[in-house]
Every structure is written in structure tokens, then in C-alpha cells.
Amino acid sequence: MNRAQVLAELTTLLNEVLERTDIVINEATTAKDVDGWDSLNHAIFIGEIQKHFSVKFALREVIGLKQVGNICDLVIERIENK
């Protein structure tokens, strides 16, 4: 799976979590840039990412996921090391 595919799937997941269809994200997007992406939805989003990609993040890794690009990095790293 390449980076663009991961980003597209993250976009879909975030729209599902926030029950919207219009959110467009890029690597620089942070929670502050998206209406409704609050702490609870962030926790749900991180959980959904792990389920969707069948990967596991350590708790301290999750803290570092400030931008969508950071999430892409971690997802790709986990998929490649499966």
C-alpha cells in the first residue's frame, strides 16, 4: 500500500468517525484544522485506524501522532514490518 492510498483510507475513516462526507485532509492536517475532531473522536479515530489496517500502536507512539503525516508514517511502517 502506498502513501497516497493510506492517506485516502485515513480520509474515509475520519469522515466515518465524524459522521461526515466532506472532510479533505492532507499530511499537514491536525485535529485543530477539522471541526469536530476533538479528543474523544481522536481516540476513536486512532482505534479505527488500528482495526482497519490490522496494526497496533504503542501508547507512547500515539502521543506523537499530531499531524496526519505522522499517522501515515506509522501506519506504513507497521504494514511494512508485518
Binding site: S39, A43, K56, L59, I63
Partner: peptide, 10 residues
Amino acid sequence: LTTNGFTPIA
């Protein structure tokens, strides 16, 4: 924490 669904946010 992980098993019970807790996610660090800050």
C-alpha cells in the same frame, strides 16, 4: 489500558 480501549490524547 490498550485492551480496555484507553487512548492517550495529550
